[in-house]
């Protein structure tokens, strides 16, 4: 497993150089094998329970079958280049799913293959490599490292990956200019607005050219204008081929996704495709029509 992992990580690392170009993101290059490009995420009968026995809480996987006593679990496949929005009310298990997909938490049962790697068989150090190189996180509460200027913030994942200082700086600057913050590189989190902080977080997430961008309610703490900015960046990233998984409870955000999953009580109850996997996300497919169908006056400030 270690060998497979390092081989794949190596491939991602070479891909990272392409991400530093002016468009900031690379088209996914997957070696063609017999089965076609492997999905970025492949989840089979995933379960997550907290506690034991009678006190056990099923956060993910749904209630047990009354006959067999086995929970059905969550099955999910996300293809390369897709943009998936996971929706659900609070307590529906979407954050638990996000934590497992982001390798921050381990499932109680089930298999999770990230970019072809079985994450369940990895040790602590290998998991940190996976988080560093395969996943870019964007959190609702920004989660920037305190007292650290934007540039150092974005350089941090590269520093953990062992990239040399000059190369790191170049790539971090490219990522920051991609999110439109080239003039804010020396600002600390407390000197940036919420929208700017979230854009720094997006730059930090994409600087390592990860296999997927994982965003947990990325616009939950933002005003409408900043929401538009951040979503526009995410749309552009997806248009250039980056796989995106969004967690949200806002229809306005879900409208941007190519595919919408709805979670209720830890189970996928609806799976709607809004746009094909190949091709631009809905917002960029026909911007005028997309804007006209806005449910409320949200887009007036973001045009």
């Amino acid at each position: 497993m270690r060998q497979l992992l390092s081989g794949r990580l190596g491939r991602v690392r070479t891909g990272a150089h392409r991400a530093a170009g002016p468009d900031g993101a690379a088209a996914p290059v997957e070696e063609e094998n017999l089965w076609g490009p492997s999905p970025v995420i492949e989840v089979r009968s995933l379960l997550k329970t907290y506690g034991h026995g009678d006190a056990a809480v099923r956060a993910l996987g749904g209630p047990p079958d009354p006959v067999t006593g086995v929970s059905p679990g969550v099955d999910l496949v996300v293809e390369q280049g897709d943009m998936v929005a996971v929706m659900g009310s609070s307590g529906s298990g979407k954050s638990t799913l996000m934590n497992i997909l982001g390798c921050l938490d381990v499932p109680s049962d089930g298999r999770y293959l990230l970019d072809g790697i079985d994450v369940g068989g990895l040790d602590e150090h290998q998991l940190s490599l996976v988080r560093n190189r395969k996943i870019g996180f964007v959190f609702q509460s920004f989660n920037l490292v305190p007292r650290t200027p934007a540039l150092a913030q974005v350089e941090l994942p590269l520093a953990y990956a062992g990239v040399k200082a000059a190369e790191r700086r170049r790539r971090a600057l490219a990522a920051l200019s991609l999110v439109g913050l080239a003039d804010r590189v020396d600002h600390r989190p407390n000197e940036l607005s919420g929208g700017q902080q979230q854009r720094v977080a997006v730059a930090r997430a994409l600087v390592t050219a990860p296999a997927m961008l994982l965003a947990d309610e990325p616009t939950g703490n933002l005003d409408s204008h900043s929401t538009e900015d951040v979503l526009a960046i995410i749309d552009r990233l997806n248009a250039s081929g980056r796989t995106v998984v969004l967690i949200t409870h806002e229809d306005e955000v879900a409208r941007h996704a190519k595919r919408v999953l709805r979670l209720v009580d830890g189970q996928v109850v609806a799976d709607v495709r809004q746009a094909p996997v190949d091709g631009p996300p809905p917002a960029l497919r026909d911007p005028a029509v997309f804007a006209a169908h806005a449910p409320h006056a949200l887009t007036s400030g973001g045009s």
Binding site: L104, S128, L129, R131, N132, N143, L144, L156, Y160, A205
Partner: peptide, 16 residues
Amino acid sequence: TREIGIRKAIGAPKGV
């Protein structure tokens, strides 16, 4: 603790 969590989420190995 939170900062440590952030660093770990963006891939800081235990050793770092």
